[in-house]
Amino acid sequence: MTSFSPIAPHLLSQPLGFPSSHYPPEEGNRWVRHSLRDINEKSSFHDRQYSWGFTIFRTVYTPESDEAFPKAIEALHHFANSYATEEISVKPLRNHDPLDPAPNEELARRFYCDIVEDAKNINGASPDDVAKRFDIWVQEHLQPEGQNSMKMGRFCFCIMLDQQGIDHLLDLRTGEASRGPYRNRLKPYVKVVTEAANWNEEGGERFWLRVGIKGHLFGLAFGWPEDLDISELGNPDPTDGIHNMYGMWPFDS
C-alpha cells in the first residue's frame, strides 16, 4: 500500500462552506477542496488513510485477460486523473484568473486502488460471491469506530472487473466508445457491488449496479449523501431489473 500523509490545510475548503455550483467558483470553496477535506476528516476510521479509490476484484482469468487486465487498471487511473483535473482544463472566463491546479493535482495523486486477484476462488464469480469477499476486506481495513460513521466510498462500493468491464475501460481509453454523440462516452460501465448493509431484501441477493466510468463512477469513491438510500442510485433496467447508473441524466442506456 502506498503511504499518504495528511493533506496540507491550504489545499482544503474553507470551514462551513458548500461546494460552489457556478463557474468560476470561489477559489476557497471548490468541490475539489471539499473532496480533499472529506479525505482528511474520514481517514481516522480506516487504514487506507488520506487516499480515495476502490477495491477491485478481478473475476476473469484467461490468457487474453492476463494481457488486458493491467491495461484496464491503467485506463481506470487515467480516468480518475481526468475526473480530478478536468475543471482546470477549462479555459478561464474573460477577466477571471485561472483556477489553482494544486488541489486537483493533489486529488489525482491520492487515487489508490486495492487489487484482489484470486483465480482459484473468484474466477467467474457472481456479484454475490464478490460481495462476500468484499465484506471480509471491509472488516479487515475499517476501524470499529468507522462502522457507524460516514465512510469513504471504498468501504461502500467495490468494482467487480469482469471481461465486459475490462473491454469497456479499454474501448473508452482507445476512443472506440467515444465516437459519435457525446452521450456515447457516458455509456461504458463497470459493475459495482455494494457493502453488506445494503442487501436486496426482496431477492435475497446483494445489490449491485452498472456504473458509467466517465459520468458517475468516481463520485462514488466519496460515498453518498447520508439521507439517500443506496437503492435509489440508478434506474432499474427494463430487461433484468439491475440498476443502471450510466448515460445521460436521469440515466439512460
Rank of each mutant, 00 (worst) to 15 (best):
M1I: 13
F4R: 06
S5E: 15
S5A: 15
P6M: 09
I7A: 03
P9R: 12
L11K: 07
Q14R: 04
L16A: 09
F18K: 13
S21V: 12
Y23D: 12
P24L: 14
E26T: 11
G28I: 01
G28S: 11
R30Y: 00
R37W: 04
I39V: 15
F45L: 07
H46A: 09
Q49M: 04
Q49S: 09
I56K: 03
R58N: 13
T59Q: 01
T59A: 03
T59G: 02
Y61Q: 05
P63C: 04
S65C: 08
D66G: 06
E67L: 10
I73Q: 03
I73R: 02
I73T: 09
H77P: 00
H78Q: 11
A80L: 07
Y83I: 06
A84D: 05
A84W: 08
T85L: 08
S89C: 02
V90P: 00
P92T: 12
L93M: 15
D97G: 00
L99N: 01
E105W: 01
A108W: 03
R109G: 10
R109N: 14
R110P: 10
C113F: 07
D114H: 13
D114A: 12
V116R: 07
V116Q: 07
E117N: 12
A119P: 00
N121S: 13
I122R: 03
I122L: 10
G124C: 06
A125W: 09
K132D: 12
K132T: 15
V138Y: 06
Q139D: 15
Q139I: 03
Q139G: 04
E140A: 15
H141C: 09
P144N: 08
E145V: 12
S149D: 04
M150W: 00
K151F: 00
M152G: 09
G153F: 08
R154E: 06
I159C: 04
Q163G: 10
Q164P: 00
G165Y: 05
I166T: 02
I166R: 02
E176R: 07
E176Y: 05
S178G: 12
S178H: 02
P181S: 12
Y182S: 14
L186G: 01
V192Y: 04
V192E: 01
V193N: 03
A196F: 10
A197Q: 11
W199V: 15
E201R: 15
E202T: 14
G203K: 10
G203H: 11
E205Y: 12
E205S: 11
W208K: 00
L209I: 11
R210T: 09
K214E: 09
L220N: 05
A221L: 00
A221T: 05
F222C: 01
G223E: 01
D229P: 00
E232F: 05
L233V: 13
P236H: 13
H243E: 08
Y246N: 07
M248P: 01
W249P: 03
P250H: 06
F251K: 02
